[in-house]
């Protein structure tokens, strides 16, 4: 084993068991790629090149097969983001109900641009495509949890509380 491979991050043995069980659900192990990438992102926060190499090795795939999937799907991140990832849907239903104003409010309050992270590493704000919850417009996903009918006051409270917790989710 080369020095580079030894330096790769590792899945826990519990995770490896889960992956083994998962692979058995499909005709071919390749089908487990998306679910394993979700697991890897959960374990390692984002999909660095080393994590992608680990996933390729675990599933017996070429690195490029993993790379083309990571770069195709918007939920997979190759860079770290803030402790709180605020994803605001700005597609039609949310736009008609104030999503753009909400994004502006968040960016002004946090003094960042869309896609940016606050210097303390607490918050990242992004715009996302239709979240499939338009009756609750505008919708904000905070670390994968849906928050519906969100207004500026709601987000202000959330930001204050999150700051008070000093970066612990």
């Amino acid at each position: 084993m080369s020095a580079v491979e030894q330096a790769l991050p590792q899945f826990s043995s519990k995770r490896l068991e889960e992956i083994k069980t998962l692979i058995a659900r499909y005709p071919h192990s390749r089908s487990a790629l998306l679910p394993v990438l979700h697991m890897a992102q959960e374990d390692f926060e984002y999909l660095s090149m080393d994590v992608q190499k680990l996933v390729a090795k675990t599933l017996g795939l070429h690195l490029m097969a993993v790379r083309e999937v990571v770069t195709f799907y918007t939920m997979f991140r190759e860079k770290p983001c803030g402790t709180y990832l605020l994803e605001v849907c700005t597609n039609a239903g949310c736009m008609l109900n104030g999503a753009d104003e909400l994004v502006r409010h968040l960016c002004d309050t946090l003094e960042i641009k869309v896609g940016g992270t606050t210097p303390d590493g607490l918050f990242t704000v992004t715009e996302v495509e239709c979240a499939g919850a338009c009756a609750g417009a505008p919708v904000v996903q905070i670390n994968n949890a849906y928050h519906e009918k969100v207004d500026a006051a709601h987000m202000d409270v959330f930001i204050t509380e999150a700051r008070g917790q000093g970066g612990k989710k």
Partner: peptide
């Protein structure tokens, strides 16, 4: 019959 939930990853 086996039934499995498979999550996508953000692609319309």
């Amino acid at each position: 019959m086996d039934l499995t939930v498979h999550r996508g990853a953000g692609a319309y």
